[in-house]
Design a protein around this nucleic acid. Structure first.
Lengths: 191, 191
DNA sequence: CCAAATCTTTGACAAATGTCCTGTTGGGCC
DNA sequence: GGCCCAACAGGACATTTGTCAAAGATTTGG
């Protein structure tokens, strides 16, 4: 079955008929980006939330010292944006860019709200996704509270095994909150 | 004006008339707990989400080594529960207890969903609150990624100045992901 | 008001992680 | 093919944080 990935994700939560899904899709714009392309610059307004159809994106912040900290990766079927800038209509403090050539479906806040009102089950969907995202972030925080670099690394591997193959270890380190040197040394510390 | 704290919070997002707010309130149960009382044990089902009217609660996890890690505090007007156990109807991996005598308004998942359906603006409210919670957790993660213990501590002080007066520093340390000894040594490291 | 319990601070040392540096590898590009 | 650059590993040392132990300080309850 050649179902659309967005439809598949929505239907894990609420059922849609063909007409409804077409209606949903009308609220999105297809946008494609190239590897290394910056999709949202720091200081810009975050006009879109991106559903990644194909490719790999990243949300990060640049330190005062120029160090970059990766808040989130976004592979296929993930939603990516600077959540605060997007929802509060403020200027972004984060950077969104592409680690691979990427195809997205892009949603403006206006269309997200419109869609939620016009098709109430989509608000159910967004609430459920946001709740699950909240729970995932809580788990990541618990990981910071209770685990050292090694455990956090292995937790990440089991959580997203595909990710490790696609991004340089220096970025994994940045996501884990350690230096690449520390990450590099982990492998041999263990048996 | 002697407005109900829950109503005040809801009306920051969606407007309610008196009848509607009474209707909202019918979905909650008043529950009071004493200091040190455990409201949700590890392994139990999380039947409620708590809106803290008065007092101070805490969500934490017990380590394999017996160390406790504090995921969240909940003062007045905060919502508290084991989010995963509550929303997924699974057994709790976290502990919810009270650091002070506490009065809450408690909401079951069934009533939350009922309320969301019967009064659609309440789903708007819950979505908005959850989104803001998500953004707050992202900020906390960025803090772990880019700040040392000292900066995290001072960030917490500016974020929740009232909290420091009400909870022992050992718990602040646990929330920040450091030992109390480390936290204790921070004050003098700086000017 | 006292005694017990809890909380905080401090010291000495160990472990984890960061910083700076060098060298090697391997793939992309002209 | 050869050059370049990004990625990775590793050494040497500094800094931060954890661990264990003990002593003060504060709060709590009778």
């Amino acid at each position: 079955m050649n179902e659309h990935p967005l439809r598949k994700q929505i239907e894990e939560i609420v059922k849609l008929n063909d007409t409804e899904f077409d209606f949903v899709l009308e609220h999105f714009q297809k946008k494609s980006f190239k590897k290394h392309q910056i999709v949202l610059h720091e200081g810009d307004y975050a006009h879109f939330e991106f559903f990644v159809v194909k490719g790999l994106m990243r949300v990060s912040r640049l330190d005062f010292d120029g160090k970059e900290h990766i808040l989130q990766f976004g592979m296929e079927n993930w939603w990516i944006t600077d959540a605060e800038a997007f929802h509060h209509k403020t200027k972004s403090t984060l950077i969104v860019d592409c680690l691979e050539d990427t195809e997205t479906l892009s949603l403006t806040l206006e269309n997200k709200e419109k869609l939620s009102s016009e098709l109430p089950k989509m608000r159910d969907f967004f609430l459920k996704k946001t709740t699950n995202g909240y729970i995932a972030l809580q788990k990541r925080i618990l990981c910071f509270l209770s685990s050292n670099a090694n455990d956090r690394y292995h937790n990440l591997i089991t959580l997203y095994p595909g990710l490790i193959q696609r991004v340089p270890k220096a970025m994994i380190a940045s996501y884990l909150g350690v230096t690449r040197e520390t990450l590099s040394r982990l492998s041999k510390t263990e048996a």
